[in-house]
Amino acid sequence: MGIYLPIAEMSVNVLVLLAMGAAVGFLSGMFGVGGGFLITPLLIFYNIPPAIAVATGANQVIASSFSGALAHFKRGTLDFKLGTVLLAGGIVGSTIGIYAFSLLRALGQLDLFISLLYVVFLGLVGGLMLVESVNAIRRAKGGAAPTLKKPGQHNWIHRLPLKMRFRASKLFVSVIPVLALGAGIGFLSAIMGVGGGFIMVPALIYLLKVPTNVVVGTSLFQIIFVAAFSTIIHATTNQTVDIVLAFVLMLGGVAGAQYGAKAGQKLRGEQLRALLGMLVLAVAVRLAFGLFLPPPSLYSLTGLTVP
């Protein structure tokens, strides 16, 4: 069953898109991630132009994050103040990211840059996750108690100036790393079409020592607004958001997420993290192959719009 995408100006199979959305939704429900880091590469593998895959991916992320954030909002597991500071940084980062996106697109280096960013970030995060979870599984088998960091433990981040108090997170920390983290995620959101949860969550836990119960809600809160901002700016400057494509993916995604969440409850935390780590690594390896293998054609065409 074909469907014509008005912005991508191509005809694609709607069943493939629904299946793609559902599969990613299933995984995102299972692991509690937005899924943007899977959707965008999948769209690129499916020959959607990377510029459109990224902007549409950012749009799709809003749907899954919004659904998740509502749940956290209801339970109150969300630090508004921390989320707002992260968001302020995120808006700046996203603006820079979109400017870089337009520039790279004009230079013809956008596709390469997107792939490189994906390989680096997915490789790092996937690798760390896999190592950490395999160690945890080993420890659990050995019967030793997992070593937890003591709450009073501080690192260099906590010695920076301009401190601010975040009550919900029971945190007294400089705004500099918070703004910088927000900006970094905003930049990646604009260029990679991801929410950035897969980087944000570990960064909040390990770098800022935010209590785990508010981490996911706060991260989702920030992701919604940054992804919304990226979507609107992409639509304004690059006209690369394909609303039909995004909607079909969302439909598959929200349905798949529910089954994924149920499946996720049956698996143990370390096993889940090991599986997710392997999945993330697999996507990184697949993208890396694309960078190093000789392309089917050395030449590519880009149409210029008549000014």
Partner: peptide, 20 residues
């Protein structure tokens, strides 16, 4: 473009809310 972007965001939020 900007209006279109807002529509896209609104649609995503609506889908997320309905999904929940």
């Amino acid at each position: 473009g900007t209006f279109y972007g807002f529509v896209a965001v609104g649609l995503a939020m609506l889908t997320g809310w309905l999904g929940r």
